[in-house]
């Protein structure tokens, strides 16, 4: 019973304990050994990767609303941060620019409010239409930010006060990642999370069972946007420079989608695992071919969607659900896919 054993090893509780231990080790890491700035920066980037993937998973994986423009909340967070830190004194006399800690929650809340405004119309649409509407939101926001020169600096962008403190960045992202992962783990077990998954499986059915689907979807969307906005604000401060082209890049959304798909859509620990693998791949393998790595990323996404749609964790849990799992376990017979039934 190989499957059974794998399932027990990857049980929610075991993985949760494993992650908690990993988080504690990571918290001690810079204290125990002398880390170079670049190593701290890399680890911080991994934390950002993992947290973004988990945020995306909340709406894209658990709720089943694949968001092709989630990076828009990153951008909103980053620009609200930039404006609050550098521009406010131009409009309110005697008000100095806000500090990092004052501006950060506002950046997150702004992204959340933006998610509410966008989600109210778009989350009423069915999955594919929502996906495209979000892609549109993303591209449109990039344009709008470029046009609003007075606030955002247009294409020239904004310079934030440079405060170089890699260790603070490291701990901030570690704590935020920990909070997000615990929150996702908790949501996954809670009634709220179960309702989200019910929406993913059968939205009409969920509605029939008395779940207020619109409310649930919007709350999940806003939570994801809040966390992504916080990271956007943090990133703006860490990077000390933002313009529409570095903040609103498709690659960021692709990475979130990729990491979630790779690890296992809708699982708690899949997206972090996928993000980790993706980061290592990008850093180790593709840094040698920096030009072509997005080509590889795109092709990899196609391959994953076609052959391993359940991701790594999904394959472990139910090997017969993906082509790869079937191949590894030596399954011969083609499993009937319930979704192939023609809908016309």
């Amino acid at each position: 019973m190989r499957t059974r054993r794998l399932e027990t090893i990857f049980s929610s509780r075991n993985t949760f304990i494993g992650w908690i231990i990993l988080l504690i080790l990571l918290a001690l890491y810079p204290q125990v050994t002398e880390l170079s700035g670049i190593r701290l920066l890399q680890l911080t980037q991994i934390f950002i990767f993992i947290t973004l993937a988990s945020n995306w998973n909340l709406i894209g994986g658990m709720t089943g609303y694949v968001d092709f423009g989630h990076a828009v909340f990153f951008g909103v967070g980053a620009f609200v941060m930039g404006i609050l830190v550098t521009q406010v004194q131009n409009y309110i006399v005697f008000a100095p620019g806000l500090s990092f800690w004052q501006a950060l929650p506002i950046a997150g809340l702004a992204a959340m409010l933006f998610a509410l405004l966008i989600g109210l119309p778009t989350l009423r649409l069915k999955g594919p239409y929502f996906s495209i509407a979000m892609l549109g939101t993303f591209v449109a926001m990039r344009e709008i930010v470029r046009v609003l020169k007075d606030f955002t600096g247009g294409g020239r962008g904004l310079d934030l006060p440079p405060v170089l403190n890699r260790e603070r960045d490291y701990y901030f992202m570690l704590v935020w990642m920990g909070l997000v992962l615990i929150a996702i783990w908790w949501i996954h077990r809670s009634e709220f999370g179960q309702s989200l998954m019910a929406i993913r499986e059968d939205e009409v059915g969920a509605e029939m069972r008395g779940i207020n689907t619109t409310k649930h979807k919007i709350i999940a969307f806003m939570l994801a946007a809040f966390s992504t906005g916080i990271i956007g604000g943090f990133w703006a401060f860490q990077n000390t420079y933002i313009d529409p082209d570095v903040v609103f890049i498709e690659q960021r959304t692709v990475e979130m989608v990729m990491a979630s798909m790779l690890g296992g859509l809708g699982t708690v620990w899949g997206p972090p695992l996928g993000a980790l693998i993706l980061y290592v791949l990008q850093d180790v393998v593709w840094s040698r071919v920096p030009e072509g790595h997005l080509v590889v990323l795109g092709v990899l996404l196609i391959i994953i969607v076609l052959f391993v749609p359940e991701g790594i964790l999904g394959t472990f849990k139910n090997p017969s659900s993906t082509s790869l799992g079937r191949l590894l376990r030596g399954y011969r017979e083609e499993q009937p896919r319930p979704e192939t039934v023609a809908t016309e």
């Binding site: 089943g64 694949v66 092709f68 999955g127 594919p128 996906s131 498709e250 690659q251 692709v254 989608v257 798909m261 072509g292 997005l294 080509v295 990323l297 795109g298 092709v299 990899l300 996404l301 196609i302 969607v305 076609l306 749609p309 896919r337 979704e339 192939t340």
Partner: peptide, 19 residues
């Protein structure tokens, strides 16, 4: 397959082609 699969595959295709 469901719409979502097609969206993800063509999304990957668009990223790969542009780059």
């Amino acid at each position: 397959r469901p719409h979502l699969i097609a969206l993800l595959v063509t999304f990957g295709l668009s990223i790969a082609l542009a780059n």
